[in-house]
């Protein structure tokens, strides 16, 4: 009895520092940001008088913030769809026990090891309309593929998606590959014995078993894309007419260049809300499944 409580005491003592640190530096600061976002602090000197929802209303009216929300949605959907699709395709191909699998696996995974800043700078050069891949297209006679890339406001955001997918699809490939390897052979054998075609095996046996992997990948990639800052900042900045602007960039400029701290805090809170919409149902779901039978 004494033994157990001593263990417990040590456990609590060891957890306490991190609990306190997380409490202050994560939840405390979220609370502080929420408080600032409701204040009048829009000059360099702190002014914490209550302003209600003024900052949020100003944001909703702002042309730039409307563009930001639109861009975030487009970016998140296309980035998720493309990363998952390409990741799954690569994983299925690699799962065919090809020769040199390790080499291919590493090639596809390597981009993930690079920081978003490096990716951004590199793709900025690659997609530069006058010096990048357009020159290559010209030389091999594929001139019709030439594009103005991120200098064309109507497709600029997709140039950023291209770079992000290049970087992260290797990650989804690795996750799907692990998932595929985890599918028990007996199930596949059973399906084949029952006369299922290879397509049916994938459609009705393997894909349903990969659902948890897809869910994890959506969570990981989704929160990256909703908060994306470094890639955009390094690659295109705000882009022509804010065609590649995202809330993170707007928040940085509003707060640290424009000295509008309360508005910057309001942008942060909306970003938190967007991520919460994605994460909270997931947490709820996992907690229920863990607690359930």
């Amino acid at each position: 009895m004494l033994r157990i409580s001593l263990d417990r005491l040590i456990a609590i003592a060891l957890l306490l520092p991190s609990l306190v640190a997380v409490g202050i530096f994560v939840y405390g600061f979220i609370g502080w940001t929420a408080y600032v976002s409701l204040s009048n602090w829009n000059t360099f000197v702190p002014d914490l008088s209550f302003a209600g929802l003024t900052n949020y209303l100003a944001l909703m009216r702002s042309f730039r913030f409307q563009a930001d929300l639109r861009n975030t949605l487009i970016f998140t959907f296309t980035f998720l769809a493309a990363s998952l699709g390409i990741g799954l395709l690569l994983a299925v191909l690699l799962d065919q026990r090809v020769r040199g699998e390790a080499v291919f696996r590493n090639i596809f995974l390597f981009p993930m090891a690079i920081s978003f800043i490096v990716t951004g700078v590199t793709w900025q050069w690659l997609l530069n309309p006058s010096t990048g891949v357009n020159l290559l297209f010209d030389q091999v006679g594929l001139g019709f593929l030439k594009s103005r890339w991120y200098t064309d406001p109507s497709i600029a955001i997709f140039s950023v998606v291209l770079a992000a997918v290049w970087q992260m699809s290797g990650f989804t490939m690795a996750m799907y590959l692990a998932g595929l390897r985890g599918v028990p052979d007996e199930l596949l054998e059973a399906a084949r014995v029952d006369g299922a075609t290879e397509w049916q095996v994938y459609r009705y046996v393997i894909l349903p078993l990969l659902h948890p992997v897809t869910l994890s990948a959506v969570i990981v990639l989704g929160h990256i894309s909703l908060k994306i800052f470094d890639l955009v900042y390094a690659m295109t900045g705000s882009g022509p007419a804010f065609s590649t602007d995202v809330p993170g960039v707007f928040m940085f400029e509003t707060t640290f260049r424009g000295n509008r701290f309360a508005e910057g805090a309001a942008i942060s809170m909306i970003m938190l809300l967007l991520v919460a919409i994605l994460i909270v149902p997931y947490l709820w779901y996992t907690m229920r499944t863990e607690a359930g039978p």
Partner: peptide, 8 residues
């Protein structure tokens, strides 16, 4: 009269 790739 400016270059078309100015945004890059």
């Amino acid at each position: 009269y400016v270059n078309s790739d100015h945004a890059a």
